[in-house]
Amino acid sequence: MGKNNMLIDPLVLSSSRNKGIALVLTGAVLWGVSGTAAQYLFQRQGFSPEWLTVVRLLLSGVILLGLAYKKEKQQVWGIWKAKTDRFQIILFAILGMLSVQYTYFAAIEHGNAATATVLQYLAPAIITCYIAFRLKRFPTSTVSIAVIIAILGTFLLVTGGSVRALSISGWAVFWGITSAFSLAFYTLQPYKLLSKWGSMIVVGWGMLIGGIAFSFIHPPWAFEGNWTISSLFAVLFIIIFGTIIAFYFYLESTKYISASEVSLFASVEPLSATFISVIWLNVTFGLAEWLGTLCIIITITVLSLVRNK
């Protein structure tokens, strides 16, 4: 019996790890594809990022909270009992969830999904700099080099390697970098809420509140664009696969592999967005843009490995 257990355990361990990797990779690819689907809606079907943002937040929030209620029951409402938790979830919903969703879609509208996604993934470098400032401690040489590589990657991505002109519009750069700062806030701010209430409840309320708040600026019935079979499919894909399923897979993967590995494998999102944008929407990506993307992927990898240590 003892020998059999010794033989089986490594196989079970390996199977669980492979399952975790498969889950996070699938989730990341779905996120990347949903970004490209959003670009298709904005640039080919005349949809607005405001409408897609509010509808995505409202529908995804309701679905996630419904799933959370099925599992947690009355625990879903507990987050509103303490004054501190109420303030934090509203702050997360507006400055975190709503901000990161809208700025990302705005960056796609003014540029493309590939560039927007890669620029958003500057967030780990921003987080690293913030933590170093907060702790009043200089980053290690490895981390410093990784941040410099990220800055180089950003330069190559937005200029195409030429200092004379931007390869994408200034608004695309603005919204893309704003999206990175929003993602950094989204990542850092809710850690106490997440540890207390869990991801599904926090993200579900964040989406629903963000959607309700944005409805006062752009109501969900104020629609513009062309409804076709392909545009309907794109909207459904973004909400179901690019939000609900991708989020669920991402959470499930943390049961089988470490958080640092999850963030490392999730870095395939900008790569998937880039490849699909180039193949499907004929986005032009030259050598400089590919090198810039590679630089930012290297930064994510290095920072994930350093955090693991």
Rank of each mutant, 00 (worst) to 15 (best):
V24K: 01
F216H: 07
Q120H: 08
L194K: 07
V100R: 06
F155Q: 04
W175T: 04
S267Q: 10
V302P: 04
T117R: 01
A37G: 12
A172R: 10
I145Q: 11
S253K: 02
S215V: 12
Y121I: 02
L65E: 05
Q74E: 15
Q43T: 12
F47L: 07
L291R: 05
Y130L: 14
T84P: 03
L271D: 10
V62E: 02
V203A: 07
Q120Y: 03
V302S: 01
I151T: 13
I148G: 13
T26S: 15
F249K: 00
A82C: 05
V158F: 12
S99F: 15
G160T: 10
F185S: 07
E289Y: 08
Y250Q: 09
F241K: 00
T178N: 10
I244G: 07
G170Y: 00
A234D: 03
L193R: 05
V158H: 08
L303I: 15
I296S: 06
A273Q: 06
N112R: 08
S162C: 04
V158Y: 10
R307N: 11
S199V: 09
G242L: 13
L166Q: 02
W171G: 02
N308H: 14
F133D: 00
G153L: 05
V118W: 08
G20E: 03
L152P: 00
K3H: 14
N226H: 13
L122D: 05
A22Y: 10
F155M: 11
V268F: 04
I229P: 05
M6L: 13
L157E: 03
R56T: 13
A123C: 04
V143R: 15
